[in-house]
Design a protein around this nucleic acid. Structure first.
Length: 461
RNA sequence: GCGGUCAUCGUCUAGCGGCUAAGACAUCGGUUUGUGGUACCGAGAAUCUGGGUUCGAUUCCCAGUGACCGCCCCA
C-alpha cells in the first residue's frame, strides 16, 4: 500500500497533541441510547428467575421454543398490527438497508412468529401448534420507569384451535407464570371485541352514539372516532370517560358465535378457579385481535397504568397475511415490568450457585501451577474463586473471606515442590496440608459435611 | 409527539458568584518479609454538553442531552 504523502510538516511542538486529538473522529459517547438499558450482573438473578420459570412452564404446557430475527420487512408489522396503530405509525424503528430493503426492528413478537408459521409450513403440524418465544422488542416511545425503547417480552402463541378452551389455557399459563415468580396479587381483565362481522355492526352503533356526544369529547377522541372509535372507550380524560359511560358495549352486541365463545371462555375460567374481571372497556392497541382480549394488571395502584402483559385471539391474522385460514391466540408479558413487580413484592430471585472454594497462590512457581489446579478443580465439578493477579497472601485471604467461601486452598513455593496443598477451613481457621492427589476427594467430603454449619452461619446475615 | 421536576467522584450526599469542590460507602495499596473479617494510614476518582450574563459560573439565564413523573400509548 502506498504511503499517504505528507502535505505539510507538523511542527514538533504539536505532534503530541495532534496524535491524541484526531479531528476526524467524533467523540465517543459512553452511554446507552435513550430508553435502552444494560442488564447488569446484579440484576441477572431476576432475569434468571424469569428465564428459568418461563422455559420450564413452556415445556410443561407443550409450547416449543422459537426464535425469530429482530429485523423483518417493515410491512410485515404494518399489515399485521395495523397501519393506523400508534405502534406502526409513530413507534417503529424503520429504516432502509444498504440493499434497499425497507425493514423494521420488531415492535412485538407475534408478527414474526406468524410469518415463521406460514414460511415453514407449520400448518401440517398437529394442532394446536404452540410456540414460545422471548427476546427484545423495540418501540420508539418516550421512556419512563417500566417503559423502555428496548424491552424484553415473553410470548406464547397457539395456532389452529378455535375452541375457547385454548383461550382459557393460555390465560392459565399467564397466570401460572406470574404466580410462579412470586407475584401473588394481580388481576386478569377480560373482554370480547367480537369478530369482524359483529364488530362492524357494533362499530357503526358506537360511532352514532359518539356522534351524539361529540361536543363532550376531547380533541384526540374526536379524531379517534374516525379511524379507531373503539379507542375512545379507553380514553383517560374525565369528560370522555363520563360521556362514554352510557355507550353501547361490545359484549352486548356480539354475534351468536362470538357470544357463545365468550360465555364458554368464562365457564372454563370459572372451572379453573381463575379470578377474572370483565372489563367491557378493555380495548387493545393492535388491530389483529378478534373475540377474546385480556390484560394482566398488577395488584398495586401503580400497576394499573403499566400492564404486566396482555394478549388475545387473532383468528384472521394468518389468513390476512397470506396463509391458510388459521385461528390463533397468544399473549405477551413484559419482563422489565415483571421484575419491577417482583422487586416491589420482594419476590425471590434465582441465586446461582456461588463458589465455596478459593484458590490462593504465593510465588511465581505456585502461580503457574495454580492455573492448572484451577482447571483440575473445575473438571471435577468444584467451582473455585481466585484472584491470581494479586501477590500477597493477605489480600487473597481478604478476598476469600469477602466472597464468603468455606475453604481456601493455599499453594505456595514449598507446597508446589512437595506436591501438596494447604486446605484452610475459613470458618474455624483450622488448616491442614494434603497431597494434590487426594485434594479433590477431600474438598468434596468437606463441602458435604461443612455445608450444614455454614448454612446456619450465613443465614443470619 | 405535548407538559412538569431534576442533573456534583462508581454509589449516596454536601457546598458556594471567588483559594487545591467536602464527606460517607465502595475500589485499590499499606500497617516488616507465607495467613482473612475489626482498627489505623494512604491513593485514585466528579460539577452532563454548548452558548450567554459577569473581572470571575459548579452556582444565575437560555438551548441541547438524559433520567423520572403526567398525558398519549403499550409489555
Amino acid at each position: 500500500m502506498p504511503k499517504p504523502k505528507k502535505i505539510q510538516k507538523t511542527p514538533k511542538k504539536l505532534v503530541k497533541k495532534t496524535r491524541l486529538v484526531r479531528p476526524a473522529l467524533e467523540p465517543l459517547v459512553l452511554r446507552t441510547l435513550r430508553g435502552m438499558k444494560d442488564i447488569l450482573p446484579e440484576d441477572q438473578p431476576y432475569w434468571d428467575q424469569i428465564r428459568r420459570t418461563s422455559e420450564r412452564l413452556s415445556r410443561d404446557w407443550g409450547f416449543f421454543r422459537i426464535d425469530t430475527p429482530l429485523l423483518e420487512f417493515s410491512n410485515l408489522f404494518a399489515r399485521s398490527i395495523g397501519e393506523g396503530t400508534d405502534i406502526v405509525e409513530k413507534e417503529m424503528y424503520t429504516f432502509t438497508t444498504r440493499g434497499g430493503d425497507k425493514v423494521a426492528l420488531r415492535p412485538e413478537l407475534t408478527a414474526g412468529n406468524c410469518r415463521a408459521y406460514i414460511q415453514h409450513g407449520m400448518n401440517i403440524l398437529p394442532k394446536p401448534v404452540k410456540l414460545f418465544s422471548s427476546g427484545p422488542v423495540y418501540r420508539y416511545d418516550r421512556p419512563q420507569e417500566g417503559r423502555y425503547r428496548e424491552h424484553y417480552q415473553i410470548n406464547f402463541d397457539a395456532f389452529g384451535e378455535l375452541d375457547p378452551i385454548l383461550d382459557a389455557q393460555v390465560i392459565q399459563v399467564a397466570h401460572r407464570l406470574i404466580q410462579s415468580l412470586g407475584i401473588k396479587t394481580f388481576q386478569i381483565q377480560v373482554n370480547s371485541i367480537g369478530c369482524a362481522d359483529c364488530r362492524k355492526d357494533y362499530r357503526d352503533l358506537l360511532i352514532s352514539y359518539l356522534e351524539s356526544k361529540k361536543n363532550k369529547l376531547c380533541q384526540d377522541c374526536r379524531s379517534r372516532m374516525e379511524n379507531n372509535p373503539l379507542r375512545v372507550l379507553d380514553c383517560k380524560e374525565d369528560k370522555c370517560a363520563q360521556a362514554v359511560a352510557g355507550a353501547p358495549q361490545s359484549i352486548d352486541h356480539l354475534c351468536e358465535e362470538c357470544r357463545t365463545h365468550f360465555r364458554n371462555l368464562l365457564e372454563y375460567l370459572d372451572e379453573l378457579d381463575l379470578p377474572y374481571i370483565i372489563n367491557p372497556r378493555l380495548v387493545r392497541g393492535l388491530d389483529y385481535y378478534t373475540k377474546t382480549v385480556f390484560e394482566i394488571w398488577s395488584g398495586s395502584e401503580e400497576g394499573k397504568k403499566n400492564a404486566l402483559g396482555g394478549g388475545g385471539r387473532y383468528d384472521k391474522l394468518i389468513k390476512n397475511m397470506g396463509g391458510e385460514d388459521t385461528p390463533a391466540i397468544g399473549f405477551a408479558l413484559g419482563v422489565e415490568r415483571l421484575i419491577l413487580e417482583m422487586k416491589r413484592v420482594q419476590a425471590k430471585p434465582y441465586r446461582a450457585p456461588k463458589p465455596r472454594v478459593f484458590l490462593a497462590q504465593l510465588g511465581s512457581l505456585a502461580k503457574k501451577k495454580s492455573l492448572r489446579l484451577f482447571s483440575e478443580l473445575e473438571k471435577n465439578g468444584i467451582m473455585a474463586a481466585e484472584s491470581f493477579g494479586r501477590g500477597s497472601l493477605k489480600s487473597q485471604l481478604k478476598s476469600a473471606s469477602r466472597l464468603g467461601v468455606e475453604i481456601t486452598l493455599i499453594l505456595g513455593q514449598k507446597e508446589t515442590l512437595d506436591g501438596t496443598v494447604i486446605v484452610k477451613n475459613m470458618i474455624t481457621g483450622v488448616q491442614e496440608t494434603v497431597s494434590v492427589e487426594k485434594l479433590v476427594d477431600i474438598i468434596k467430603k468437606k463441602l458435604k459435611t461443612d455445608s450444614v454449619v455454614v448454612h446456619h452461619i450465613t443465614q443470619g446475615m
